[in-house]
Design a protein around this nucleic acid. Structure first.
Lengths: 141, 141
DNA sequence: TATTATTGTAAGGCAAGCCTAACAAATTGT
DNA sequence: ACAATTTGTTAGGCTTGCCTTACAATAATA
C-alpha cells in the first residue's frame, strides 16, 4: 500500500524524524538548513509529504509525522545505519565518507540487499577476526 | 576537466560501449530497447552526449565513442564489474539482483569507495576462506 | 503596541528525463 | 524503382526538484 517515495522525499522524511528526535520540533527552515535547499523547496516538499499523509501539516502549522510517515522514516534510517556500519566498520572508510555514501545508497537498495548487509553486520560482530583480516590486508597495500 | 555526468547519461554511455563491443555498431533503436526508453528519449540523450564530445554523432549518422567517451564508459563499466563481483561473489546474492544493484550504485560511489571495493575483491581472491565464512554464516541462518 | 526580523508561501523559471504523436529519412522487399 | 516498413527527429507535454523574488504571517523586541 505504501508507494515508493523518491530519494528526495525520503531525505526530507529522514531529516524530519531525526530533527524531531533531537529537538522535539522542526520548522521548515531547520529542514532547509539541514538539506541545504531553499525554504521554498522545503515548502513544496512538505506539501507533497502531507498529500501522501506522511506528515501532519497545514499552512504555518507545526510539523509532525503520521504513523505511516514514522514507519517509512525508520525504514530509511535503518538502511542508513546498516550501510554506514558497513562502510565505516567493515570497509574501514572515514566516518564522513561512510555517511555520505550510505546517504545515497539508502534510497536505492531493495529489502533483500539490505538484509544481506544486516547479516554481514551481525557476522562481523560475532566474528570480527574474519572481517578484520581485510582491514589488515588493505592497510598493508 | 571531465565534468560529472548524470546517472542517465552514464547509462547511455555504458550501453553504447557494451553494444559496440558486441556488435560493432549501435543504432538509436538498439539503445532504446536496451534501456527501455522511447526512441525520442535516446535522440535527446545522444544530442547531449555529442554536445559533451563523448560520442561522434550527427543526424542519421553512425554512433561512435570519442576517446573521452570511451574513457568514461570504461570507468563506469569498471565500477559496475567491481560492484557486481561484490554482490554476487562476496555477498552471495543472485546474479540478476547483483546486476541491478550494481547498476544503481555505480553512478553514486566515489573513486575512493570504489577502490575499497576493488581491494575487497583482491582480498577475496587471495583469501577466499575469510569471506567464505560469511556465506556459511548467512546460509545457516 | 509598533517596529523589525524571521519564517513560510506563492509565483514564475529552469534543467533533466521521460513520454506520445506526427513527420522525415532510410532501408527493405517486391 | 516504388511501396511499405523501420528508424530517427521534432514538437509539445508532463513531473520532479531545485531556484529567486516578492509578499504574507508570525515572533521578537524596543
Amino acid at each position: 500500500m505504501q508507494e515508493k517515495l523518491t530519494s528526495s522525499l525520503e531525505d526530507y522524511l529522514e531529516v524530519i524524524y531525526n530533527y524531531l528526535d533531537k529537538n522535539n520540533k522542526v520548522r521548515a527552515i531547520d529542514i532547509s538548513r539541514e538539506l541545504c535547499v531553499s525554504r521554498a523547496s522545503v515548502s513544496e516538499a512538505l506539501k507533497r509529504l502531507a498529500d501522501r499523509e506522511l506528515i501532519n501539516y497545514g499552512r504555518y502549522d507545526v510539523i509532525s509525522l503520521t504513523p505511516k510517515g514514522t514507519e517509512q522514516a525508520l525504514d530509511v534510517i535503518n538502511k542508513h545505519n546498516t550501510l554506514q556500519y558497513f562502510f565505516e566498520e567493515i570497509m574501514g572508510l572515514e566516518h564522513s565518507i561512510s555517511a555520505q555514501t550510505a546517504c545515497k545508497i539508502e534510497h536505492i537498495i531493495s529489502g533483500e540487499v539490505l538484509e544481506r548487509f544486516a547479516a554481514l553486520k551481525d557476522f562481523h560482530k560475532a566474528h570480527p577476526e574474519y572481517t578484520e583480516k581485510f582491514k589488515e590486508y588493505y592497510r598493508e597495500k
